[in-house]
């Protein structure tokens, strides 16, 4: 990342955030349906990010050791295990599966 690239990257992401944070105002922000949508939308996004980070490499779908680590993380999270424990066990599981020669 060059100096110009870094600057443009920072400004670009900041602009994206500010456009998002300030594009809804007045009537829309108080609307009940909009409020409900804004509760559901982050879940769609977060779920999509997890799926992409787990099952893809570039533009191809792959099933590898990451899937095992994330599956373990999902089960532990469902059982309300503290976040740090979830994260450490997910990483160790993935590393172990790789050590065993898969993905």
């Amino acid at each position: 990342m060059t100096a110009l690239g870094t600057l443009l990257f920072i400004l670009g992401v900041f602009a994206i955030r500010m456009v998002g944070g300030f594009s809804l105002s007045g009537v829309l922000a108080g609307n009940e349906r909009v409020t409900r949508l804004l509760l559901l939308m982050p879940l769609s996004i977060v779920s999509a990010v997890v799926a992409v980070q787990t099952f893809t490499k570039g533009t191809t779908l792959v099933l590898d050791a990451r899937a095992v680590g994330i599956a373990v993380a999902a089960i532990l999270s469902w059982r309300k295990v503290p976040l740090g424990v979830v994260v450490v066990i997910a990483a160790l599981t993935t590393a172990l599966v790789r050590q065993l020669g898969w993905g």
Binding site: V46, R66, S77, L96
Partner: peptide, 19 residues
């Protein structure tokens, strides 16, 4: 990847997904 660091990021918010 060898120490599983690539799953740390998605694992850190998988909790919101299962919730």
């Amino acid at each position: 990847g060898r120490i599983g660091l690539d799953v740390v990021f998605p694992a850190s918010f998988v909790g919101a997904v299962v919730n």
